[in-house]
Design a protein around this nucleic acid. Structure first.
Length: 951
DNA sequence: GGCCGAACGTA
DNA sequence: GTACGTTCGGCCC
């Protein structure tokens, strides 16, 4: 197993300047000023400590400026000519930077003629091209041009991506943060910098153009050349004159700020591998300069910061908070209390435009849509709320008072007019839109022709930080009311309070505007506040990778799947339904005859009493309800003993289930507008990271029985199209073989063998129907966190025998036992399990005194990394699927459903041949390059007129 | 009307 | 033995 390589490039020269100005002037025992060096040393220490953490470095290098002259001086001789000489007490610290870096045994790179920025850009390009991720440790604005840049995929390897880390502010800088700073995405930062110039570096720019104007010009015109070209047509002003006069100067500036990405690389990036840091040279350095607190930690630690993750985190250089102690102990943020009277109800165009401008200027806006119902595919838009800061929130009613045609509607901006005004804001790549469960808003607004982007979702952020965490009875959910209570100490108005409940409930559009404003604007306000509290925790707690690279990109993809929906054959469902009804009627009569009375067959209570009390069959009471158990296992046992009624009840149950849950419910779920069924996926529904599906649940459509399979036949494609199903074969066992490092299982998968047969051979020495079946049961038992009792129940043997089999399994596959042991150790110690991609699941009861509770957590903790890794992999495949199909010239292939290890597509029949290999490849390579699995991921593809036929 | 447990559909 | 969601009956308010 090879974890994702992650190169950290430290902008050493820039750091030292900032550290100098921010830290008190310290001197070492010899009287040499070392304040900035101390800051630099603690930063390296902290970075090295993050080795092996989810987003931490695997490789690290420090990049320095070699001298004052660079190739830019050949282009523009005054470049950096205005630089004042560095302060006197900083000068002696420059060489110490190199000493410090060497003390950590880290590579230090500098190259005559190039600036550190150029070397960083070049190294970043090389690393991302190899599929590594890159974090630039700096806050230099020129380097922000690189943020979010990802290398093109090649040879089946996904390129890595670049982000930045400002260690002084303890802040990750990704695309949204760049947008927040510059008002434009990173690829346009160079154009903004070119216009505004830089007095320190003596980049001329255009005189009189500062950051504000530069941003405005690029936002309006798109890029520098277009802005310059548009200048003659602008209205007469000083600005217009200067843009025309100084166009060449602006172009020169662009060249000066553009980073050179093809420098010679003095040292190969493989040499940057970050390993355990030898303590001796580090101790010598720390001692020489009197950094006693660090020295003490080095001595009490296990040797060096790179393998002393148990150490307390280095004391932050600034007052910024260190890593959070856990969600339950979050201090309340420093924000004014929620004041609903501060909210504004927007009823005029002018007020709306003003808020849109405010949001654009803030570059970040929390939004929330209010609708007439919960189903995003049917609901009508009632209004939209926005927030740009604490208590700075508004509500824009759009269709209030529509129910009573004769009543006078409250004054409000007309829906189409308001949406036309909001559209540029909601679609602007310069403004981040934050939502709580924003997939809902994406779907509602998409139905009005608005494609909201870029986005952040506080619910998903909460999930990626705290999945599985429950706060001593407070609950560990990710709903807004709960999050507000937990993180803001604020109780929100509830929907029920505003709209009532049950029969008396009114649609949101009928709520009076003052109440509607309080509720809706509060939701946006709270979302804004939650974002400010939760988002920074991602980088502090190692959640950035899973959020930015897996879950956030998935949001619009899943939203699109929901909007596509899937066609079902209503007539066929109705036909099945009546067939089932007929059979049910007949069975009912037969059951009544057997029992000598009529009763509610669907009531386990009544059924149990009749079977066991009245008819005298044997079977025990069960559990706390004091009720007879009549479940499948019990009835099958009775049936085996010749009880005909048990067979009939089982058959009745199957048909009844199919009819009520599927044939009837699916017809009711058909959307009258689209004629299709639109499920809703929850991205936070399963603690392990799996999706869940509701209204209707399309992830539990029958397949195992012949009669159930008929329901799959009712899922069909439009004329001329087919449904294509692609599923991972045995993915969880493959992942178990990889994660537990079991050579014989890995070998069996590599050779394409029947894995259960192989297990049977290892376990029992022979393969036949019986031993293969038992081996299969044991294999799954392993994935689910084995126990002797559970396995005994499944195999129909006694617990001692089951234990003997488990022992035998561990003996034959020693990696499995080691995996279970190590996984549990880690969960007990840290509180959470982790997938191969860094997704955490928390297990607060893993050390419970209650044995059953603790063992339950242990089983879940063994399963979570495997199930969760599987979820991560298919999510990555889903996010890449759209672009891959587009690139292959297959825009008509639509991804409709996800069922944990299966993806279902609808596509023109003529596209099947071309699409199949693309889908197969994307799925099979979905783990790469972050994780290189030791086993191949098998993908099986089939297509046909229906979902049933596609299998 | 709302909530819970039993039962059962999927991976 | 893991992870879900839905339906139903039964019971509560």
């Amino acid at each position: 197993m090879e974890p994702k390589q992650h190169l950290y490039l430290v902008d050493g020269s820039a750091y030292i300047f900032r550290a100098y100005h921010r830290l008190p002037p310290l001197t070492d025992p010899e009287g040499t000023p070392v304040g900035a060096v101390y800051g630099y040393t603690t930063m390296l220490w902290k970075l090295a400590e993050d080795l092996n953490k989810a987003d931490g470095p695997t490789h690290l290098a420090v990049i320095l400026d070699a001298g004052s002259e660079s190739f830019r001086n050949e282009i523009y001789e005054d470049y950096k000519a205005n630089r004042p000489p560095p302060p006197e007490d900083l000068v002696p610290q420059f060489p110490l930077i190199r000493d410090a870096t060497r003390a950590f045994s880290l590579p230090c790179i500098e190259e005559q003629g190039f600036e550190a920025d150029d070397l960083i850009a070049s190294y970043a390009r090389e690393a991302t091209r190899r599929g590594w991720d890159v974090t630039i440790v700096s806050s230099d604005k020129d380097l922000m041009q690189l943020v979010g840049k990802c290398a093109e995929p090649h040879d089946g390897v996904e390129g890595g991506c670049i982000d930045m880390l400002d260690t002084m502010k303890n802040q990750r800088i990704d695309i949204p943060e760049v947008i927040e700073k510059f008002g434009v995405p990173p690829e346009k930062v160079g154009d903004v910098l070119a216009l505004m110039g830089d007095s320190v570096d003596n980049v001329p720019g255009v005189y009189g153009v500062g950051p504000k104007t530069a941003t405005k010009l690029i936002q309006e015109h798109g890029d520098l050349e277009t802005a310059l070209a548009a200048a003659p047509a602008m209205k007469k002003s000083k600005l217009q004159e200067r843009l025309i006069e100084q166009a060449e100067q602006a172009r020169l500036s662009k060249v000066l700020v553009t980073l050179k990405e093809d420098c010679n690389l003095p040292l190969d990036i493989d040499a940057f591998k970050l390993d355990a840091i030898p303590p001796e040279p580090l101790a010598a350095f720390l001692g020489k300069h009197g950094f006693t607190s660090l020295l003490k930690r080095l001595e009490t630690g296990t040797g060096s910061p790179a393998n002393t993750t148990q150490l307390n985190p280095a004391k932050p250089v600034t007052a910024a908070a260190g890593p959070s102690e856990g969600a339950s102990r979050q201090p309340l943020p420093d924000m004014p209390a929620v004041d609903r009277s501060a909210y504004e109800c927007i009823t005029t165009e002018a007020a709306l435009d003003q808020w849109i401008a405010r949001a654009a200027q803030a570059r970040m806006v929390a939004i929330d849509t209010e609708t007439s119902a919960l189903d995003a595919m049917r609901a009508d838009l009632a209004g939209i709320s926005m927030a740009v800061g604490p208590n700075q929130a508004c509500y824009i009613p759009l269709s209030h008072g529509g129910t009573d045609m004769f009543a006078e509607k409250p004054e409000q901006v007309a829906l189409d007019n308001a949406l036309a005004r909001l559209k540029p804001l909601l679609e602007s790549d310069a403004v981040l839109k934050v939502g709580q469960n924003i997939k809902y808003d994406l779907n509602v607004l998409a139905r009005h022709g608005i494609e909201v982007a870029p986005i952040d979702d506080t619910m998903i952020v909460s999930f990626d930080l705290d999945a599985g965490r429950s706060m001593d009875g407070i609950g560990g959910g990710h709903g807004m009311d709960e999050l507000s209570e937990r993180h803001l100490g604020h109780t929100t108005l509830t929907f029920k309070e505003i709209c009532g409940t049950g029969k008396k409930a009114i649609p949101f559009g009928e709520v009076p505007l003052d109440r509607a404003t309080e509720y809706a604007a509060e939701d946006a306000d709270v979302t804004w506040r939650l974002h400010s509290v939760l988002k920074p925790r991602l980088s502090e707690e190692g959640g950035t990778r899973i959020y930015e690279r897996v879950d956030r990109p998935l949001i619009p993809v899943v939203a699109q799947m929901e909007r596509h929906g899937i066609k079902v054959d209503r007539d066929r469902l109705a036909h099945l339904s009546s067939q089932f009804a007929e059979a049910l009627g007949a069975l009912e009569q037969e059951i009544y005859t057997c029992c000598g009375q009529e009763f509610t067959i669907g009531s386990p209570k009544q059924l149990g009493e009749i079977l066991f009390d009245k008819m005298g069959y044997k079977g025990g009471r069960k559990g706390k309800s004091g009720q007879y158990s009549t479940d499948q296992a019990v009835l099958e046992k009775l049936a085996g003993e010749g009880a005909e009624v048990a067979t009939k009840v089982l058959e009745w149950r199957q048909l009844s289930k199919l009819r009520s849950t599927y044939t009837e419910a699916l017809q009711a779920a058909i959307n009258p507008d689209t004629g299709r069924v639109h499920t809703s996926y929850s991205l936070v529904g399963a603690q392990t990271g799996r999706l869940s599906s509701t209204e209707p649940n399309l992830q539990n459509i029958p397949i195992r029985t012949e009669i159930g399979r008929e329901i799959r036949e009712c899922f069909v494609a439009e004329p001329g199209n087919v449904l294509l199903s692609a599923d991972y074969s045995q993915i969880e066992l493959r992942l178990a073989a990889h994660m537990a490092d079991v050579p014989s299982l890995k070998e069996a998968f590599a050779k394409g063998e029947d894995i259960h047969a192989r297990t049977a051979t290892e376990m029992f020495g022979t393969v036949d129907r019986d031993t293969r079946g038992r081996a299969k049961t044991i294999n799954f038992a392993i994935l689910y966190g084995i126990s002797r009792w559970g396995l005994a129940g499944r195999l129909g043997v006694d617990p001692d025998e089951a234990q003997a089999m488990i022992d035998r399994y561990f003996e034959r596959f020693p990696g499995i036992q080691r995996y279970i042991h190590e996984t549990l150790e880690q969960v007990r110690e840290r509180g959470y399990s982790e997938t191969l991609f860094g997704r955490k699941t928390w297990f607060p009861r893993i050390n419970s005194k209650n044995g059953a509770e603790r063992q339950g957590s242990e089983r879940a903790a063994i399963n979570a990394p495997i199930q969760g890794t599987c979820a991560d992999i298919i999510k990555r495949a889903m996010a890449r699927m759209g672009p891959a199909l587009a690139e292959a010239g297959l825009p008509d292939v639509k991804m409709l459903l996800q069922v944990h290890d299966e993806l279902v597509f609808e596509l023109p029949e003529s596209d099947v041949a071309a699409a199949s290999p693309v889908i197969e490849r994307v799925m099979a390579e979905a783990a790469l390059p972050a994780v290189r699995l030791d086993v191949p991921l098998g993908v099986e593809i089939g297509s046909g007129a229906s979902w049933g036929a596609a299998h």
